[in-house]
Design a protein around this nucleic acid. Structure first.
Lengths: 350, 350
DNA sequence: ATATAAGATGTAACGCGTTACATTTGTTGT
DNA sequence: ACAACAAATGTAACGCGTTACATCTTATAT
């Protein structure tokens, strides 16, 4: 096997000291004599020597590496969370593998396995097959059999009844929906519709549930015909609003499953000659970049991205270091409204 | 040091064979007797044993891992290229570290170092401090001193005069600009402006240069007052078009530095009561997701994302495997126009 | 039946940094 | 000057998979 760059033994030889001493210098052990340390350090610098993290990890059983598995970074939501995860990971001196499953189960299995073989210290799962509505048994078994005991954090999901070493962090979309309705009713809206999304997917189910529950807490009407499900993207919004516009009676405010759908709704309304927010106030979710570029820009309920990232990394590292997590292994973060241009009071008499 | 999961020695012991034999089974060596292979495989399956990639990499000097360093995955362009890189990497059985520099030089240095310590087989640099217009000497020295001889691929940049083991892949933005102008003049436009971007940044400089050069090849006029530089984002587009609208004479077609700026231009024009594409045809670059959601949607010059990703990974792996690269170590890919709604022939008499 | 080749498996060194433990050097006390 | 202890450094095993080389079986040839 061909020899790699300079190794710790090369440095030791040149300094006429043992590898242990060089290692001590590398790890800032305080037992090394100042003089020796200087000598060793100078040789290290001279050769630009950097310890091989593979060898180090092999012995210490710690790679300072974590894996993140999510559907697609091209989605703004995932990209934002990822960036925050990375920012936090850096504080723990960790580097992160990013794996995009493209919503393909096989690919998710494959990456999970790969990351495990690469001895990641922990795994963060995002938007995958484990959420509050459903748990993919097959995938959970993979985790149990192969990745255990590597700690796992689920973002917007829950797993602790199935996997020992895990925690979860998520946004409280139920409460967020209440905030949304509170906001719209306080503007004076009494007729609220809901567009986009798909049943069976967590964030749709949660929001719909909250919508029904909110009826007793706030003063508004919400008819079945004002709920049009479709999908999570721009086209989903377009399709849903087109269906809604068929109805004889219409709501004055529309809550969209997310900002992409909201953008489709806003643009379609305008194309059809309606005024937003004049005829319809449109409220989105997620605070995606798209929400700032439509005309009007979209008022939205935002995740606490930074907290989402930092808490998941913190939880993960608590588990990695086997620190007691107390009772808090599952946290729901509050979302918050970001006011922009797509919501106002309803037109008088509407 | 506490013992990790099952190791190859555990498997060997249970099978009463040597570790070499187990290793042979793992690597599908054909010298193992069928019977032995079955025995070993059954024990491997029984324990869900997976070889430790750290140990494997330590010996083989190959981690099957590559690093990608870019400014920010939240930018759609980078996210799209990244996804394509990952898709190709999987074919080489490689997993990828993603590092976001947030355009911070120190962070870029830090990650470069980290990836090198982690013994990545190769590095892909994207949108960083090495491009065709400028080369950050300090960073290049870091590469030379620390990461060498690890191969490096630069996307949209060039480095081969400075670093031995490198290649580059990029989009031919010069030619793309000619395509853009050819397209607009063929629609009948004779007055073309250019908005957004910033001199000193490669893609602006290249496009401007092409714009001037195109004057002799196509029949159109382009006045200095129709060039308004600003930045690469939505706001940059807004700002540039507002400045342009101050001029007494206006172009009929506008080329934007990218789709984000184009979106700002389109929305601002509409807000100011102009019609797009009626009063102004607006042409963007990059084929970002934003180009499909404005009204009208934006006609754009797209990168060949898939090729950008696959070629950079292919080049990288050629270098990793020390395959001869022939003369081709720098490739410029053709861009192509994606027609959407923001360009038509100019209004009669304009 | 014996030599020779081919097939199968084992042995041990290797890649490289870390650390428990052993050994050497230096210091303080009397 | 020598014990007793502290400080500094060295030795070697370890983490774990791979592979060159050695050894042992079994098959083919004569």
């Amino acid at each position: 096997m061909r020899k790699n760059k300079v190794s710790i033994r090369d440095i030791a030889r040149e300094c006429k000291v043992s590898v242990a001493t060089v290692s001590r210098v590398l790890n800032n052990s305080d037992v090394v004599k100042e003089e020796t340390r200087n000598l060793v350090q100078s040789v290290i610098d001279k050769h630009n020597y950097r310890p091989n993290e593979l060898a180090r990890g092999l012995y210490t059983q710690r790679t300072k590496t974590i894996g993140v598995i999510l559907p697609e970074v091209t989605s703004h939501f995932f990209a934002k969370v990822f960036i925050e995860i990375e920012k936090s990971a850096i504080e723990y001196e960790q580097t992160v593998f990013l794996c995009n499953t493209l919503s393909d189960n096989e690919l998710q299995d494959f990456y999970t396995l790969r990351l495990s073989e690469k001895q990641v210290d922990g795994l963060i799962l995002l938007g995958g097959r484990v959420n509050e509505t459903k748990t993919d048994v097959q995938y959970v078994n993979l985790l149990k059999n192969i990745v255990y005991p590597t700690p796992v954090v689920i973002i917007n999901g829950k797993l602790d009844n199935y996997y020992d070493n895990c925690a979860s962090v998520g946004s409280d979309e139920h409460e967020a929906m209440f905030q949304a309705i509170s906001y719209l009713t306080s503007l004076g809206h009494k007729k609220i519709g809901f567009l986009g999304g798909k049943t069976g997917i967590m964030s749709t189910d949660i929001k719909l549930k909250a919508l029904y529950e909110a009826k007793s807490a706030f003063d508004f009407t919400m008819k079945e015909e004002w709920i049009k499900l479709s999908s999570y993207d721009y086209q989903g919004g377009v399709q849903a609003i087109l269906e809604l516009l068929q109805e004889k009676e219409l709501p004055t405010a529309i809550i969209a499953i997310n900002d992409e759908a909201a953008a489709g709704i806003v643009n379609t309304c305008i194309a059809k000659g309606y005024n937003v927010p004049g005829d319809f106030s449109v409220l989105g979710f997620d605070n995606s970049s798209i929400s700032t570029i439509t005309m009007p820009s979209i008022t939205t309920v935002s995740h606490s991205y930074e907290k989402l990232g930092s808490l998941s990394v913190e939880f993960l590292n608590n588990m990695i270091d086997e620190k007691p997590m107390k009772d808090v292994t599952n946290i729901s973060l509050k979302m918050h409204i970001v006011e922009r241009g797509s919501c106002t009071e309803p037109r008088a008499g509407a």
